[in-house]
Amino acid sequence: MIGLGALFVACWSSGFIGAKLGAADAPVTTVLMWRFVPLALLLAPWLVRSGAGGRAGLGRQILVGALSQSGYLLTVYCAIGLGVNTGTTALIDGVQPLVVAALAGPLLGVAVSGRQWAGLGVGAAGVALVTWSDATSGHGTPLWAYLVPFAGMCCLVAATFLDRRTRDRPSPVRAVAIHCTTSAVVFTALAVATGTALPPASARFWLAMAWLIVFATFGGYGLYWLLLDRVGVTAVNTLMFLVPAATTIWGTLMFGEPFSAWTGTGLALALAATWLVSRRPQSRERAVSAARGAPPCHRTGVAGVRRGRRFDGGSA
């Protein structure tokens, strides 16, 4: 799982870099259309296979895809196009574990420990510090632009909970096929409506599309849903705290984006939050959990039972 987690972080962060590469040669709608049309064609065999949940399940997965891909990516690409740094965009999206943790109890029946809340609070401080540093750096990005990636993060959170509350979910491959087809339809419609469907002929644009398809979609997005099934929602969203550091390093090396002392401090706080949230409970904590009749969670530190199912990646 450690190897898959590291690969997920690298691939997810690559999506922010690919977005900036593609946006250098074409409008956001063009980039997104030509990212997902080839994907929909490649994944068509899995789309036509019968899956769990019937028509209701298919409709639910279409909604999940519209939120987790269409809504999320449109806001991320727009934020980067408005001038928000790739690392800052990734870190604002890193608020996701805070929102998930706050809603996990009422929506999924998952308990979050005090240690985890402390870690999530540290992560929020890191996000605020880096965002403030970027917003006041004087590079001309309007302040409201920093709310755009926050809206995208909310879309991904909503999709995650909608998927977790579904009893009969399709396989990760079929789910990705449904989501990519949904996004292909949405972004093609947007590109045609805005007159931006024609792609540029530059080699850099098509290199960016290949980058986004292979690394960001198959690697990042595919691993997101695979890891959700295997290790649970808390563990996966904790990995999101590592994405901003990877993205910031990529952005600094590839695009010369500024890396200030405030940026480093904020990222250090985010990494500290990851350690606090994801580390295994101490033996005394395990003993207390056992005395209360709660199973120790060796993967996520969260013991949650709802309707006979655990939400840390296994079954009760």
Score class of each variant (00 low, 15 high):
residue 126 G to H: 04
residue 128 A to I: 11
residue 128 A to C: 09
residue 133 S to W: 00
residue 133 S to I: 00
residue 135 A to Q: 12
residue 135 A to C: 00
residue 136 T to C: 08
residue 137 S to T: 00
residue 138 G to C: 06
residue 139 H to R: 14
residue 141 T to H: 07
residue 144 W to E: 05
residue 145 A to L: 03
residue 146 Y to N: 12
residue 146 Y to F: 15
residue 146 Y to C: 10
residue 149 P to I: 03
residue 149 P to W: 11
residue 153 M to S: 07
residue 156 L to V: 04
residue 157 V to R: 06
residue 157 V to D: 02
residue 159 A to F: 12
residue 159 A to K: 05
residue 162 L to R: 12
residue 167 R to G: 07
residue 167 R to A: 15
residue 168 D to E: 15
residue 169 R to N: 12
residue 169 R to Y: 02
residue 171 S to D: 10
residue 172 P to V: 02
residue 172 P to A: 14
residue 172 P to L: 10
residue 173 V to C: 08
residue 175 A to R: 10
residue 176 V to A: 15
residue 176 V to M: 14
residue 177 A to K: 06
residue 178 I to C: 10
residue 178 I to Y: 01
residue 179 H to R: 11
residue 179 H to F: 13
residue 179 H to G: 08
residue 180 C to Q: 08
residue 180 C to Y: 01
residue 182 T to K: 06
residue 183 S to Y: 01
residue 184 A to F: 03
residue 185 V to Q: 12
residue 189 A to H: 01
residue 190 L to G: 06
residue 191 A to M: 07
residue 191 A to I: 01
residue 192 V to A: 15
residue 193 A to D: 03
residue 198 L to N: 03
residue 199 P to K: 12
residue 201 A to Y: 00
residue 202 S to P: 00
residue 204 R to G: 05
residue 204 R to T: 07
residue 206 W to F: 12
residue 211 W to L: 09
residue 211 W to I: 00
residue 215 F to Y: 08
residue 217 T to E: 03
residue 217 T to F: 07
residue 220 G to Q: 10
residue 222 G to Q: 06
residue 222 G to R: 08
residue 224 Y to R: 05
residue 226 L to T: 14
residue 227 L to F: 09
residue 228 L to A: 07
